[in-house]
Amino acid sequence: MPAITRNTLIDVFARCLVFIAALVPLVFLVKDVATGDIGPDPGQAITERLGLTAFQFLLLTLAITPLKKVTGWNGWLRYRRMLGLFVFFYASLHILAFLQLLLGWGDLWTTFTQRPYIIAGATAFLLMLPLAVTSTKAMMRRVGRGWKPLHRLIYPAAILVWVHFLWQARSDITEMVVYGLILLVLLGLRAYWFGLPTLIPLRRG
């Protein structure tokens, strides 16, 4: 019994650490806004940074399975849900910032029907919505065998997010080439290890 208690304590402690680490980008953003380091066009800068942070957390979430496979340590899985929810958290803030700071809640119809890069980003967010909703233990039980295929929606979402960024790269796409390669490796490893069909969302078995 004492051993289990000790492990539980370490686990809780580790989760707290990951949680705090995941808030660091937000803390730095708030700090830059407060000190003025964010620059003369804060709306643009805040929106961009929140979006990129969400994408980085998405890649981190997708790195968990490969990490588990490579290191042989299953413990990585304990942090996946939290990281996934942080993707959703930063993506939600990103969209709120976009609506409030860049769009001012005007031009909504044109923006979400006529601007392809917005459509790509918005679709990615819609795909992630059911994943966030079904992330609790209770919902996992209720969804049952369909849970895993449902959560493979994260793959098309990740690709759409990348497209959303690439579409906006104005002249130098180096950064998005790097992110694209990382995404390709993360998805490619899965295809290599488990077979391409295991990447298809909503497909049972």
Binding site: P40, D41, P42, G43
Partner: peptide
């Protein structure tokens, strides 16, 4: 990719 009807005169507020 975006509207040109308005502009943010810098420095802009948060």
């Amino acid at each position: 990719r975006w509207s040109q009807k308005r502009e943010r005169r810098l420095p802009s507020g948060v």
